[in-house]
Design a protein around this nucleic acid. Structure first.
Lengths: 193, 193
DNA sequence: AATAAAATAGGACGTACGTACGACCATGAT
DNA sequence: ATCATGGTCGTACGTACGTCCTATTTTATT
């Protein structure tokens, strides 16, 4: 209830609060009223700035997209060598799981919503595309790799890498024994080298 | 509207209809009334047999678990050799994606619900455990494999296999270009051999 | 200072939901 | 024949939801 002492934009404040709510309790369990209340604004302000719940969630995802795609690419560009880049990517996912599980939960929840809501599906599709392109661009350019996975396009490899990271992360987030699943990420790294 | 000409148990009929609804429109978008209506049964019958919506979904998942875990294990036992078993597992997932996408959607939706609903999370956790155990038991028993992934336990390998299959399937189900993502499954198979 | 535009607030609308309840009906045992 | 039991039904309750509308306040422009 510190809403009065906030000098940020109302629209930003709403967006941040929405992220907080959605990543903590999930799209289906968060109401517009919850977000308004926790952001310290009137309910109608959410409609004013974001039209409806669907579009608000889309903006939340978009905010995360802008923030973290750059972070990933920055990480990958800052190290040299394919091995190091792969290690850096795996490390990024590990840190995500350890330090920002809420972000990962938001992502998983978004994936499930995208099953049924067309606009979400569109956005997720381009998010997947961007992620695979980053992996392709940074990890799979040298011919050595292309030779190793002979017959498979870099895009295919990239999708598998992303799939393995995503699927393993889901198990870690939702499973009871995190540590053993964490090992799978290490294995993924060695296996691809 | 063929509800009268049905000789199955009402409780079974409800369960089957619930699966149909949930796998087509998702947990959040299906009401008890929808299921009752489509099953040709009074709303209160759902409460009578399954207590509430949460428990009904749990029974639906349980039904699928009983059905498909046996199917997977049966498939794996029917072929010899680790390579063939791995191929069989990948084939199973491919067929799942191609022929029973609704089942996969139900599963993904269930994963997301498990993020927020404790009883779902418990059930998903044991489902994950059972799946990894099947993979371990059938694919990772011979010492040759254990040597290859030196330093990693069979359980770790199994979790990575499951993670890769799950993550890739998610991309295929939700992405726009299925064919290219399908290739990733083939790659996963070659990579593990 | 006057006025137009943007921002904010509060509340009402219609609807849908999960659940609970009490009444009926069929069946089978006494 | 009666009656208890398990199954079935219709319905009502209380609540929560997303969205919409209108009035008021604040800000910016001239």
């Amino acid at each position: 209830m510190q809403q009065k002492t906030d000098k940020t934009n109302p629209s930003e404040k709403i967006l941040i609060t929405a992220f907080e709510c959605l990543s903590t309790r999930g799209y289906a369990n968060v109401s517009m009223r919850n977000i308004a209340e926790e952001a310290g604004v009137a309910l109608s302000q959410l409609t004013y700035y974001y039209k409806n719940k669907e579009k608000l969630f889309i903006e939340v995802i978009n905010m995360m997209r802008l923030q973290y795609l750059h972070e990933i690419e920055g990480n990958l560009e800052s190290v040299m060598g394919e091995k190091e880049k792969l290690a850096s990517l795996v490390r990024f996912f590990k840190e995500l799981i350890r330090d920002k599980p809420k972000l990962l939960k938001l992502f998983i929840d978004f994936i499930a919503q995208a099953l049924w809501i067309p606009s979400f599906r569109e956005q997720l599709d381009s998010l997947f595309t961007e992620l695979t392109e980053i992996i392709e661009r940074n990890l799979l350019t040298c011919t050595k790799i292309n030779k190793r996975y002979l017959g498979y396009s870099p895009q295919t490899v990239a999708k598998l890498v992303l799939g393995a990271l995503l699927g393993t992360s889901i198990q870690i987030i939702l499973g009871s024994d995190r540590d053993s699943a964490f090992e799978s990420l290490n294995l993924a790294e060695s296996l691809l080298n």
